[in-house]
Amino acid sequence: MMRANGLYKTFNPGTPIENPALRGASLDIPQGQFVTVIGSNGAGKSTFLNAISGDLIVDQGTIEIAGRDVTRLSAWQRAGLVARVFQDPMAGTCEALTIEENLAIAWQRGEKRGLRGSLNSSLRSLFRDKLATLKLGLENRLTDHMGLLSGGQRQAVSLLMASLKPSQILLLDEHTAALDPKTAAFVLELTDQIVRENKLTAMMVTHSMRQALDHGDRTVMLHQGRVVLDVAGADRAKMDVPDLLAMFERTRGEALADDALLLG
């Protein structure tokens, strides 16, 4: 369960490049729901996800995860609640560390780390089993460096890392954008499977309206730092890309009209 209430975030306040990225963004996601997020470039999608993960602290508004107010907590303090996969395949893993070391780090997400060994034979066999489910042959490459893997393999491992430990919300920010169509489809399918199997609450940002409708239970659209569209259930089930596009254009027009009114 995640509840974001009236989030505001302005970059470079008080300067000529002042940029209000979030302007009252609110979203309530019940336990186990998979939400897809769309919106044009600069709509504030990444900023929204970064606010939830704690990568940035909002100027105003509150964020609650699993009933806990996390608004003022930094990213590492929220890690026990939040799992995430980044857009850049390089960002979510350490290329200088081995596959098993990366998994060992994720195995302790949000936990206290002591002087005990980070790896042992039972952990290794667990990692091997988990990697085998990816069907990429990585189960035999535990001690290979992450840097040797392709972007798609890395995103697959990142997904695995995000699901190794339970989380209250999984954040996926265009995590297939850097991949070729075939690999993207594979990683997307893997995402569905992992979210389903672990009954995860998830938010997935995508630029493809097709993906937004085909995956998950609910679709929201962000525009100028606000949630301007929110469809789920039967409404969403009978929607197709042109319908969504039409709604997108309409809300955008309204938003523009709103601004014109404000400016006028």
Binding site: S53, D55, S74, A75, G80, C94, E95, L97, R109, G110
Partner: peptide, 15 residues
Amino acid sequence: RATGANPRMARSQGI
């Protein structure tokens, strides 16, 4: 080691 190699990833893992 994760802190030096990829601080953002490290923080997202609770380090």
